[in-house]
């Protein structure tokens, strides 16, 4: 899965604003298909906040899911090749940072894991560089971050300034799943009680509901071989969110989104009295709060249509 797209350069919305930070950006496969709602909304949100996400040229698969055996050096070629791309755009002065931003939390996990493993072992780094002899050598000084970390670094006031439609009426439960949190060396928050989404949602004015199942795995790739097992997890996660008072959940992962959203179909098969619940990409809600053009949210790709809920709360115009 190699993209031949060139780096996305976006025009500044209003001249006179301070120079925007250009960060290398790694999208990953699913953000170009079912996860388009995540990519488009995140890019729009970033732009609003003065962050330019510069898509890496010639990126390839992130190497998901991280291989876990001790003799798996070959499995790290794909992710490290992406790090070479980061190095290239950085060396060429096309970006202001050596930290590559990810949106998909599975890509984040896979890239950060491989980068840490290979950079931490000079011998392995050399082996991979030798193997990829057509590429320039990876020096090991690039880093992998998640978009949430970038948001967390921004001045909360600056984010609050952009909020045009506070989400006050919306009871929303952040969902984290696995790959943003675990293992500890990769995770960006307390693996048992993460709060990073909550803090940002509060800036957006949402009523944040703490779901005791916020870190429980959605079943991940098991959705391929046993959709009903995954549906049971979806049922548990969403029912507990509902019981705690939530009307919707948020996520940053296109696989969690699929399992939590699309698998509601199987949940209903097994639990007819289950009440469907919209599953937002976190940045879709940010775009709504910022009053951005709803087209960037690609709500048409959501399985459980969140628009009636948003309209009911007065967060979206009728007909939009």
């Amino acid at each position: 899965m190699t993209s031949e797209q060139t780096s996305t350069t976006r025009a500044a919305p209003d001249t006179g604003s301070p120079k925007r930070t250009r960060l290398p950006y790694y999208p990953g496969c699913t953000l170009k298909t079912t996860g388009k709602g995540l990519e488009d909304s995140a890019l729009a949100v970033a732009e609003t906040l003065g962050v330019e996400l510069v898509e890496l040229p010639r990126w390839n698969c992130c190497g998901v899911v991280t291989s876990l055996t001790d003799d798996d050096l070959m499995r790290h070629i794909a992710p490290i090749r992406n790090m070479v791309r980061v190095q290239e755009v950085s060396d060429a002065g096309l970006v202001d940072d050596k930290r590559v931003v990810t949106l998909c939390s599975m890509c984040f996990n896979a890239l950060k894991w491989s980068n840490a493993r290979i950079v931490g072992d000079a011998e392995d780094l050399k082996s991979l560089n030798d193997f990829m002899y057509l590429e320039e050598d990876y020096r090991g000084d690039a880093e992998v971050v998640h978009f949430l970390e970038i948001l967390k670094e921004l001045d909360p006031e600056a984010i609050a300034e952009q909020v045009k439609t506070p989400l006050g009426e919306l009871n929303v439960a952040p969902y984290y799943g696995c790959t943003l949190l675990r293992p500890k060396s990769i995770g960006i928050d307390d693996p048992e009680d993460p709060t990073i989404q909550q803090e940002l949602l509060e800036i957006m004015g949402a009523t944040v509901i703490d779901n005791p199942y916020k870190t429980v795995c959605c079943g991940s790739y098991q959705t391929v071989q046993d959709k009903y097992a995954v549906a049971e997890l979806t049922h548990g996660i969403l029912s507990h969110a509902r019981a705690a008072g939530a009307e919707a959940v948020t996520t940053f992962c296109p696989l969690c989104a699929f399992n939590l959203d699309n698998r509601q179909r199987e949940v209903l098969e097994k639990h007819p009295d289950f009440e469907p619940m919209p599953v937002f990409y976190f940045t879709q809600l940010m775009a709504v709060a910022f009053g951005l053009n709803p087209k960037c949210c690609r709500f048409d790709l959501n399985h459980t249509d969140p628009r009636p809920l948003l309209r009911g709360k007065g967060l979206m115009k009728e007909g939009a």
Partner: peptide, 22 residues
């Protein structure tokens, strides 16, 4: 063994992950 309609619906990341692990 995966029905075509399911294959069409599943996001790439689910398939790639499942094939990597299984």
């Amino acid at each position: 063994n995966i029905p075509d309609d399911e294959l069409a619906e599943l996001p790439q990341i689910a398939l790639v992950s499942a094939f990597r692990k299984l």
